[in-house]
Amino acid sequence: MPQPVISAVDLVKRYGDVAAVDGLSFEVAAGESFGLLGPNGAGKSTTMRMIGAVSTRTGGELSILGLDPDRNGPDIRSQLGVVPQADNLDTELRVRENLLVYGRYFGLPRKVVAERADELLAFAQLEDKGDAKVDALSGGMKRRLTIARGLINDPRILLLDEPTTGLDPQARHILWDRLFRLKEQGKTLVLTTHYMDEAEQLCDRLIVVDHGRIMAEGTPAELIRRYSSREVLELRFGSDRNEEVARALEGSGDRVEVLPDRILVYTADGEAELERIVDAGLHPRTSLVRRSSLEDVFLRLTGRSLIE
């Protein structure tokens, strides 16, 4: 079996008394697309900073490309592409210049950097924006430019921290398409997200993280199979009636989850379950049958929803 490109054993990061990361163990294989899914403050970004060799661990073992980030930070970072949560493009420079300058940090010859900059502008669909000011770009374009910048050194691993947070749906889909292409090219991707649809689209395998610990690990399909039912029936009876109806619904499906605005019934067959409920004389204002998602997995594992 080939060596993992990232290997963490009991990884810990403490800030004072607070353990932001509290014993994570995982491996990422070359070419794999690996996700860290969890709510804000779960320790995802801290983990990413440790993988990115810019934050030292408090405990545990961490090996990136067979090297220890504490000792070989610059060497490891020369093989990474990093797309941080907050854009840190250089607003004093133009779009193409951002790529040129960044490529030089890796010690790449000017000619190589210039060629790659043009290729990457095309990849990021920014060919005609090369001379534009960074501030003139839309949020989605800035993200794409940041990804292009992260690819300037042809990295072994691309780290993406919340790549589509704050983008509108169209911009997100363009970005997913780009990232999917990278995945197809065999690039190793590590991404954090609190969007389950993003994780389902992009991750081969993921860990669900909460309070700095791993709650579950597997492929999106595996996790859904293991922790949720095939379908979910969403019922809305109105905020004031949800609690009361929930008691009547006890025993429906595999499991019932009461949220402030709606009731979720986990079941293999949503339509059949809805029929049974209506036959029992309960009439929801709205009902919706959908496939289980990672959101449901998360809810099951932590009792909380991902976005609060």
């Binding site: 993992p4 067979g66 610059p74 060497d75 490891i76 050194n153």
Partner: peptide, 27 residues
């Protein structure tokens, strides 16, 4: 999962590690 021997890590004897060390030299 097969873990690499930590001694191997120390010596940076893998291809990945060698490649990283080479790329890190100029910066």
């Amino acid at each position: 999962a097969a873990y690499r021997d930590p001694v191997v890590t120390e010596n940076a004897a893998t291809d990945d590690a060698r490649q990283a060390l080479a790329a890190g030299a100029r910066p």
